[in-house]
């Protein structure tokens, strides 16, 4: 049995566990480890032991105070988990899985009613409705719009848009409130890539009306995730609501 050289892997791994590799070196690490194969015991030992060192380094710091609500908010997010659907990130092309529930908490009949109510609001409410809309946007005649409902257990949500034209409204009812320091962020998926839509928090009664300055004709799916108020440019959590536009 020949002994293989692990010096390159060790050098790269010792930095990788600290978060110190750039993309090129990370690719080199994967290439090297790939050449050694999944059964390389020394590779695994290096990875595990350096990983343990890096993990324990966190304890060098004095612990930081935790907001009292954070535990409950984290548990709330945990309860929103569900089954997996594929996704691809905007940057980095990192493959992975999103989890989303597809069971419905309440009968489907309510969803068209939500859509109809919003349609009436937009069509007849005219400019008065603008005050209710997050993100601005002109009212449009939704009798010519396509309305698609979202699937998920976080509440009733629908999107109305006119194919081929810019502008869409996302409206909801019975929406669960996100944790106190979180917002909902709407994403449009173009060929599997999530593109940022808009952020919103439901009003106290669980309703929402949000304008998207986007043309949905190029999107195949939409999703809603729970995000920080910074409204990140790529999703950081699993979707809690999804819609199929195809």
């Amino acid at each position: 049995m020949t002994m293989r050289d692990h010096s390159a892997i060790e050098e790269l791994l010792s930095a990788e566990v600290l978060g110190g590799l750039d993309d090129r070196d990370r690719e080199a690490l994967y290439r090297e480890m790939g050449e050694h194969g999944p059964d390389c015991a020394e590779c695994r030992q290096l990875r595990d032991e350096y990983g343990e060192v890096a993990g324990r380094m966190a304890f060098a710091m004095d612990p930081a105070p935790i907001r009292p609500e954070l535990e409950e908010e984290t548990v709330e997010l945990a309860r929103m988990r569900g089954e997996a659907v594929p996704y691809r990130r905007v940057r980095g092309g990192r493959a992975g899985l999103w989890l989303v529930r597809r069971r419905h908490r309440r009968p489907h009949i309510l969803r068209p009613l939500v859509a109809a109510a919003a349609a009436v609001l937009l069509f007849f409410g005219g400019w008065a409705a603008r005050d209710l809309i997050e993100g601005g946007g002109p009212p449009f005649d939704v009798t010519t719009a396509r309305v698609v409902t979202f699937q998920g257990e976080a509440g009733d949500l629908a999107v109305a848009y006119r194919p081929g034209q810019t502008g869409a409204y996302v409206f909801g009812s019975n929406l669960q409130a996100p944790p106190s320091n979180r917002v909902y962020e709407v994403w449009m998926f173009q060929e599997g890539t999530p593109v940022r839509g808009a952020c919103f928090r439901p009003k106290p009664g669980g309703t929402s009306l949000t304008y998207l300055d986007a043309n949905l004709e190029t999107a195949q799916q939409m999703a809603v995730t729970v995000e920080s108020p910074s409204c990140p440019s790529a999703p950081t959590t699993q979707p809690i609501l999804t819609a199929d536009l195809t």
Binding site: V17, G19, D48, G51, E52, A54, G55, R56, A58
Partner: peptide
């Protein structure tokens, strides 16, 4: 490895 190291590495 340990749970605590795994958790900390994940968060890091």
């Amino acid at each position: 490895g340990s749970v605590k190291a795994w958790l900390m590495a994940t968060v890091h």
